[in-house]
Write a protein that binds this DNA or RNA. Structure first.
Length: 283
DNA sequence: ACCAGCTCCTGCTTGC
DNA sequence: TGCAAGCAGGAGCTGG
């Protein structure tokens, strides 16, 4: 699914249509996604004005007037599309909602925002807007990668004493929030750090390097509109293209692109998930 | 407190 | 060509 860059791309794509708009009606086409929708979900959104659209880790947060915020997570396969025409049986360009179109937001502007999610690992929820830090899925999240508080010493401190592999530690949303399998692989490759390293063994220079490469790869990916492997689309339907910028992820057998390294990218499995790295230069 | 493994679900890719 | 197995960007939860 969308990791931080994909969610940020979606946020930027939705913001133009959503921020300042009023939700005229919500069509909720099934009772649950990953979780059941909150009670009276559609009714609680009707008539609300969207004051801001924010991102926390891989979550989207639409701040509404009236005291609530709409929390949205795209899971593995969620996407939004924005269309200028209201969806109706005879008015929508495609005639009607398609397969896996689970939620439709009909805005008073006439635009329609549709949430599509084949695997249904995503979810939507409502929470009090004034105490979002206490929201159950936010309370344990770690630092945002772009939070100035995340620097080499801070990262090293949070990894101190951890025997878990570096790869697993970076996927742990309680430490740094927003990274997923792709960008962890990419950041470790760029920083020339082995995904197998015990997290607690990072030196100060290594931690500093890793923070810098995490930020660099996320920035580049956001600029490219995210990575489209299978499901990710920007809200206008366009593909992201950062997958062409991968140096390790999904490149098993390819030559290592790191300067001066003649190694090859290999695939291993950690915690049941693929890790791509160069054993020659990632130490 | 920590960690590995399981689980939710669909659909694309791979290999026989 | 057909079919089944394997695998996928997440992450909460369970049991050890």
């Amino acid at each position: 699914m969308p990791e931080l860059p994909e969610v940020e791309t979606v946020r930027r794509g939705l913001a133009g249509a959503l921020v300042g708009a009023t939700i005229a009606r919500v069509v909720q086409r099934r009772a649950d996604l990953r979780f059941a929708f909150p009670q009276n979900f559609a009714a609680r959104l009707a008539g609300r004005r969207v004051e801001a659209l924010e991102r926390r880790a891989k979550y989207l947060v639409a701040v509404l007037d009236g005291g609530e915020a709409l929390i949205m997570h795209l899971g593995m396969s969620g996407s939004f599309r924005v269309e200028d025409q209201p969806i109706g049986a005879f008015h929508h360009p495609r005639g009607a909602p398609g397969p896996h179109d689970h939620v439709l937001f009909l805005l008073s502007s006439g635009a329609t925002i549709t949430y599509n999610d084949p695997r249904r690992f995503g979810f939507m929820d409502l929470a009090g807007r004034d105490n979002l830090a206490d929201y159950r899925f936010f309370a344990n999240l770690g630092l945002e990668p772009f939070d100035p508080a995340l620097d080499g010493p801070a990262l090293r401190a949070m990894l101190a004493g951890k025997a878990a592999p570096l790869k697993a530690a970076l996927l742990d949303q309680r430490l740094v929030a927003g990274l997923g399998n792709i960008y962890v692989c990419e950041a470790l490759h760029r920083a020339r750090l082995s995904p197998l390293r015990a997290a607690g063994t990072l030196t100060a220079p290594e931690a500093r390097r890793l923070v810098a490469e995490i930020r660099a790869v996320l920035e580049e990916a956001i600029a490219a509109g995210g990575s489209s492997l299978r499901d990710h689309r920007q809200t206008n339907g366009a593909l992201g293209y950062f997958q062409h910028g991968f140096s390790a992820y999904d490149r098993e057998g390819a030559g290592c692109a790191n300067k001066g390294c003649g190694g090859m990218i290999t695939r291993i499995v950690q915690g049941g998930r693929s890790t791509f790295y160069c054993a020659a230069c990632q130490r």
